[in-house]
Amino acid sequence: MSAAPTRSDTSSCRRARALVALRHALNLGLPILFVLIPILSFVLVSFWTLQDGQIVRTFTLANYRSFFTEGSYLPVYLSTVWLSLQVTFVNVTLATAIALFIFRRTPRVRFFILMSFMLPLFMSYIIKVYAIRTILGQRGLLNEGLMALGLIDQPIEVLLFSRTAIFVALAVIYLPYAILPIYLALDRIPANYLAASADLGASALQGLRHIVLPLGRPGIAAGAVFTFILTFGDFVTPQMVGGTQGFTFGRIVFSQFGLALNWPLGSALAVILLATTLLAVALAGLTLRREHVR
């Protein structure tokens, strides 16, 4: 009982303790190293400035001030928020309808329909954007088709390189990201809930309103957050289908790093982008407050 631990006891004990410490260090260290430090570093850089091509490391809010006062930053930011909200609204509505459509099929058919909607996720992003360009372009499928039908004599130019084109392209590309979480939420609704709802006298529409949509809400919120974040940060699609019209906030951030080489300003704008997406996540979280776990 009271015998002193032998030497080997203490060493194995020490080794076990070291392993535990290492595990804690990794658990805590990896996120810090790969997530927190990069974020903190550009938060830090956002408080510096660029003068004569050199970064000046003195704390200043100048970059944030320019966001609010200078040129087109704020208007582009607001128009991008508005665009993203529109895409989110349209996509969540469409995705909810599609998810409901899949949900109402027999289990065997569901998987195939779901997979066919997920198929675009297996394609390269660039290919999808080009595909949209060939549909919307001056000599694109849509224009040629309309002309062949004699509905128009000249190609409609606004189809491509317009805000509408960006809107359509973003909606198409990010639709699967909304369908998946919404469908998964619906899929978790016990089958007999709808039977019980109908049994108690509810119409299909009332069942949708009182059972399906409330229980699908976590999925709808997740789908909305995914769509909003992805659209808001996208800087490739707007450039490729929007041309000069497609100056979104993502492209401004990108241009500060890639073209203007103004990293401090770029970082400040990126911090604003990050804050906006975090706000979106927080708002979505608020709607899930009243979830009752079974």
Binding site: N192, Y193, A196, A198, D199, V293
Partner: peptide, 20 residues
């Protein structure tokens, strides 16, 4: 007569209480 218009109600095997 569809389910929701039948003039009686059911107690389901696993109750099917709406958890929300």
């Amino acid at each position: 007569v569809p389910i929701n218009r039948r003039p009686f109600n059911t107690v389901f095997q696993d109750y099917a209480l709406f958890h929300h």
